[in-house]
Design a binder for these strands. Structure first.
Length: 564
DNA sequence: GCCGTTTTCGGCCCGACTGTTTTCAGTCG
């Protein structure tokens, strides 16, 4: 899939045009880029079907450019633009405080071509002398170069979530604070988070901002006003806080939660009704007619409440206006976790530990699925050990009340697509999960397809093998995978490990549209990691999964019937 | 460059904060 490649080029064209001072076209290219970026289908397939122009934001011109890229691997006009661009616009624009205007001036006046030039010019005190620049700007640039150079990528949701919860808690303890909500991409539960956006209502905004900017782990204050402030923590995370009135809380929460694209679409709906929407409310002739709650605003715009995880302007607005939004899976709908590891394959907790911890979540069942023998590094079990484990599981299951312990295994799909455990052993297990754990460069599609054809295999774990910000994943034909999953009744996993979240939101949505069934598992290697289930559920919600699309929302009997 | 319950031309979301300015442009979200 080259969707991300295409999207990146469209974004770059937007930047290039903006630097040239072209108006409005950058907006069009960015919109097209977003469409391609979040497309669940392969852009090449859309092209082959001749349907590029059906995509939102893609017209004749951009369609032609995409076609050119798919056919020739190049876009002439883009190459031309890039050739004429004398400086490294990507890295210069990544410096906080520098936008297209300032970057252009820096090149014209000081011949700044890259971050090193920029750093030199700043250190020599040349920048402060430029019109529109000053000493503070120069100092900020120097600091922000450092940040741009070592900028850690976005933070994993699984890491950001507990940090946000802790800061929320701290703010809640102030007596001046009434409400605190972390909005932004965290509230939408995106798999990675750029910064935290915290919304507050308070009897004394100044005091809250004062506390916020002087919290113990604040490293820098980026901005500070009476109602809005930004800080950077020592761990590099940026937090924006905003204090609003109770009467504006809903509209501010909407605005602050985003996505930007969702908000723009909402504002357009407002305009079509001769209304104006901003973070201060929904206005009719300058009179606020909604704003206290998000529900109010949506209602006055003629639609029901839209769950934050769906607010990406990927079709939710159209359905909402028709009152046809799906009811997506809830955070309390999961009744069991079907993928976890124990001390049998080298992890800290035993079967009973895992079961007892799982019971806290209200689960009715779990499945123990240790690794198998070809995964030596994980102390994978062989046939004999699996049979021995079966007896142990029966014993613990008998001992514990209120939760059923099933016996499974996460078997390895070898390079030839053959499983590393004999079928005679597999058929005695309650659940067989198959996954690729080695040889990522081979033909993963064929390997997985072959595994799915095995009647003992119920679930494919982490189907694409990607690790967020670290590994791209196997080269895989997802359409083929979905076809085969549907044909054989094999369940596809949403793996809740913070680094995996695999399938991801876009692919999970495509799988559902394909008619595949999903399971949300933690793949926990300790009791602690059982807590990650909420991350997987978040992915499912972002994929618009309904309860019925996910097999482990069912009672034990019904769930078992969904297996092969 | 795209798009249409303000339709094939004329718009394109809206507002806060900052720094460098004597009223605002640029950047950000």
């Amino acid at each position: 899939m080259r969707n991300l490649e295409v999207a990146k080029i469209l974004y770059e064209i937007a930047d290039l045009l903006e630097l040239k001072g072209v108006e409005f076209k950058p907006y069009a290219y960015r919109r097209a880029a977003q469409t391609v970026e979040s497309l669940s289908k392969d852009i090449e397939d859309v092209y082959k079907e001749g349907k590029l122009e059906d995509l939102p934001g893609i017209g004749k011109n951009i369609a032609q450019k995409i076609a050119e890229y798919i056919e020739t691997g190049k876009i002439k006009s883009y190459e031309g633009l890039k050739k004429k661009m004398p400086f490294d616009f990507e890295s210069l624009l990544s410096v906080g405080g520098l936008g297209p205007k300032k970057v252009s001036i820096l090149y014209k006046k000081l011949r700044v071509k890259n971050l090193n030039d920029l750093e030199k010019a700043a250190k020599l005190g040349k920048i402060r002398k430029l019109a529109g620049f000053g000493e503070k700007t120069e100092k900020d640039i120097l600091e922000n170069i450092g940040i741009a150079k070592m900028r850690n990528e976005r933070m994993l949701l699984g890491i950001a979530l507990p940090i946000a919860e802790e800061i929320e808690q701290r703010l809640k303890e102030l007596k001046e604070v009434r409400k605190v909500v972390t909005a932004g991409s965290l509230r939408r539960r995106k798999e990675t988070i750029g910064d935290l956006d915290i919304l507050i209502t308070s009897s004394n905004p100044t005091k809250v901002m004062e506390y916020f900017t002087t919290m113990p782990d604040v490293k820098d204050i980026i901005a500070k006003g009476p109602t809005k402030a930004s800080v950077r923590l020592k761990n590099g995370l940026q937090i924006d806080a905003r204090v609003v009135k109770d009467s504006e809380f809903g509209s501010a929460l909407l605005y602050f939660t985003g996505s930007k694209e969702h908000n723009i679409a909402l504002r357009k709906v407002a305009i079509s009704k001769k209304l104006k929407l901003s973070e201060y409310g929904l206005f009719k002739n300058n009179k606020q007619i909604a704003g206290k709650t998000e529900e109010d605003v949506y209602k006055k715009l003629g639609m029901p409440y839209i769950e934050p995880e769906m607010r990406e302007n990927l079709g939710e607005m159209e359905l909402a206006l028709k009152h046809a939004l799906p009811k997506i899976i809830g955070y309390n709908d999961i009744l069991g976790d079907l993928h976890m590891h124990t001390n049998w394959s080298g992890n800290p907790n035993n079967i009973e530990d895992m079961a007892l911890h799982a019971k806290h979540f209200g689960y009715k069942y779990i499945c123990i699925t240790d690794h198998t023998k070809s995964l030596a590094i994980e102390h994978g079990l062989n046939e004999k050990q699996i049979e021995k484990q079966a007896k142990e599981i029966k014993k613990v299951d008998k001992k514990l009340d209120g939760i059923k312990i099933l016996h499974g295994a996460e078997v390895n799909i070898n390079a030839d697509g053959i499983l590393d455990i004999r079928n005679e052993t597999l058929k005695n297990l309650d659940i067989v999960i198959a996954g690729i754990h080695s040889g990522f460069k081979g033909n993963a599609t064929e390997r997985i397809v072959k595994a799915m054809e095995n009647r003992n295999v119920d679930i494919i774990s982490h189907p694409t093998g990607r690790l967020i910000q670290y590994r791209k994943g196997y080269d895989i034909d997802l359409q083929k995978l979905f076809d085969k999953a549907k044909e054989t009744g094999t369940i596809l996993e949403i793996n809740s490990q913070p680094k995996r979240l695999d399938l991801n939101d876009i692919n999970a949505r495509a799988a559902i549209e394909h008619g595949c069934r999903l399971v949300i598992n933690t793949d926990a290697h300790s009791t602690e990691q059982l807590n990650n289930m909420r991350l997987g559920i978040a992915v499912a919600r972002r994929a618009w999964a309904k309860k019925k699309d996910v097999i482990n929302t069912n009672s034990l009997d019904k769930m078992l019937k969904r297996l092969k």
